[in-house]
Simulated assay, not measured.
Amino acid sequence: MQIWFLGTGAGRPNKQRNVSSIALQLPEPCSNWWLFDAGEATQHQLMNTPLKLSKLDTIFVTHLHGDHIYGLPGLLSTRSFDGGVTPLRMIGPRGLRRYIETVFEISGTTLDYELEYVELGEADGQLAYEDERFSVVASTLIHRVPCFGYRVVEHDQPGRLLADKLKQLGVAPGPQYGLLKQGQDITMQDGTVIYANDVTAPSLPGRVVTILGDTTPCANVLELAMGADLLVHEATFAAGMEEKAHLFGHSTTVEAAKAAAEAGARKLVMTHFSGRYHNENLLQLEEEAQTLFGAATAATDLTCIEIERRT
């Protein structure tokens, strides 16, 4: 599982940073990926990654400020040209559907695939998405417009089959392997029972990734980030600028670090930096956060991070 930072700037793009967008590459055997926000020129940033728009199947939107959604119409249109024909889920605040449909109506845009909308109410801990491998919970944050954070939870995966042990027990590859892999015990022709737990390695623990929209410090940040393997938290301003940050519904580096520490996250990646900070300032911003949380880093555009599984 990998996470790509397509845009790490706040408000407007500059020469070093594009505006907000994050891609989450799902683990094998999945070939699909998810997108969190799509600021202006997100599709341009994607050209610098191996991610294909035809494999994008879900977009999560944190809120409807322009630096998080102005890239959506062009990206959705290009997906048709890139061979995207499968339905695409759009999950986000109320008004998301009206925004997209209005732009497409006025511009005469048509798509070769269906858009499926899920508009979230302003509630905490609501299930935004679930399938056999993942669940995603959304909760409200404190910003100037309705805004959400998302907690992506990968379900634990069955351990691998111990092929050498199965061979010793006389179990030939085939349908019985599949049953054991699913955790079902099998009975051999001679009446011997092979217990699935005896011939499989321990299950693989699922990973937790928390991706927040714009926010000032609040209780739901901690709920969403509790025990996360990776927390993505905005850090629009440097330490000491808390009053200005809160005035505009944002956080500072030390507030992001404090949240990661209190939530027991394994790693913190800060993003959504004000245009007043250049990439040369990121080391200072990292050091501010690391005074409270050692595993803190500042993302730059096109940073790709592997999300390690707990052992």
Rank of each mutant, 00 (worst) to 15 (best):
I59K: 01
Y113R: 01
P173M: 14
E116A: 06
V208P: 00
Q43C: 06
G227A: 10
I211L: 11
N18D: 12
A128L: 09
M226K: 15
S274M: 05
G178Y: 10
R310I: 11
L46V: 05
D190K: 00
T291D: 14
S21E: 12
V221W: 00
T78V: 09
V118E: 08
T42G: 05
T110V: 12
F81N: 06
L222Y: 11
T236S: 06
L53S: 12
S251P: 01
R17A: 12
A263N: 07
E116W: 01
T192A: 05
H233A: 15
L268F: 03
I100A: 05
P13E: 10
L302Y: 03
L56H: 03
L166N: 05
L26W: 13
V85E: 12
V208I: 14
A295N: 06
P217G: 05
G240M: 05
T252P: 01
F248C: 14
D185L: 03
V171L: 07
T62N: 14
T311P: 05
V254T: 13
I106C: 07
P205H: 01
G66F: 10
H278W: 10
G183F: 09
H155S: 15
A257G: 07
F134C: 07
E223S: 14
L268H: 01
H278Y: 04
H68E: 14
A196W: 05
L268S: 05
R310D: 13
E119H: 09
P205M: 04
R276W: 10
Q16E: 14
Y99Q: 04
L35Q: 12
G71K: 01
T192R: 02
R79I: 10
G84H: 00
E154M: 11
T253Q: 04
F248N: 13
E130S: 12
L224R: 01
A128M: 13
F36G: 09
P202L: 03
A128D: 07
R17S: 08
V152R: 00
C147M: 07
T291I: 11
T110N: 13
I3F: 03
A41K: 02
Y150C: 11
E255N: 02
V152M: 14
Q168P: 09
G206D: 08
V103G: 02
G92C: 08
L285C: 06
L88Q: 08
E132F: 09
G213I: 03
L231A: 10
T215F: 08
S139R: 04
D214E: 10
K267Y: 06
A41N: 13
E132C: 09
A228N: 08
A196R: 02
A299D: 06
R97V: 07
